[in-house]
Amino acid sequence: MSEVNMPAQPPVLDISGLRVAYGERTVVDGVSFQIHRGEIFGLLGPNGAGKTSTLSAIEGLVSPKSGQLLVDGLDVRQEPLEAKARLGVQLQSSSFQAELTIQQIARLYGGLYGVKLSREQIRESMRTIGLEQELGKRFKQLSGGQQQRLALFIATIHNPLLLLLDEPTAGLDPQSRRGLWRRIEELRGEGNSILLTTHSMEEAQAVCDRVAIIDHGVLLTIGRPSELIDKHRDDPRVLSVAHGAPTLEDVFIGLTGSEIRD
């Protein structure tokens, strides 16, 4: 990659003052953060915190009430298709046409992202993600881990600048989760940036360069996982939930409260 002589590149993602509302209800309220090239950024928060809504605004699925959203310097609202071409997306709950086989799904999404894949190339790709035997199957016939691998493959089919993964490890067994983390590391190595949401602190610490904690639509804190622990280790709310030295999870629970969300 010849990034050396290039003019200063804009952040991969630049969000400022983002506000998303459904009807009267504001669910993302003044969120601002940036993601840089090759960075893996984790958006942490309890259920209903506004993680998916933030991603939806970036993806163009909801239109924000206010704020600015730039992908690679492009305004998402003014140039939605240009912005989408730079995004790889794995939605929290999405599905592929039930009547299509894995092979046909790969072909369709390749075409939608401008990547022409031959049968042999698809077969080869599926081999690398362990779905070679599944080529003729339908999406619904796959196991949870297989569905996730396919969805991630589709999300990265065009080698996107920024990958948006909404709770990618939800419902996965430990093997699949580790497999996904490995894949995320590889993607970073290839120059992709990643924004993922999770409520697993283990995951955030394992793969994220930086994390932000969001609750009730507001970003509470942002930084490297170790920085966050240092920054909040003397917060009484964190101390009251910590057993011994505070962990990222203690920071998370301290800042977002112990009440259970659904």
């Binding site: 690679d72 071409a85 730079r86 401008g114 990547v115 080698n159 600048l161």
Partner: peptide, 8 residues
């Protein structure tokens, strides 16, 4: 060769 930014 780097990430893809072209519109398909």
């Amino acid at each position: 060769t780097g990430v893809n930014t072209a519109r398909p």
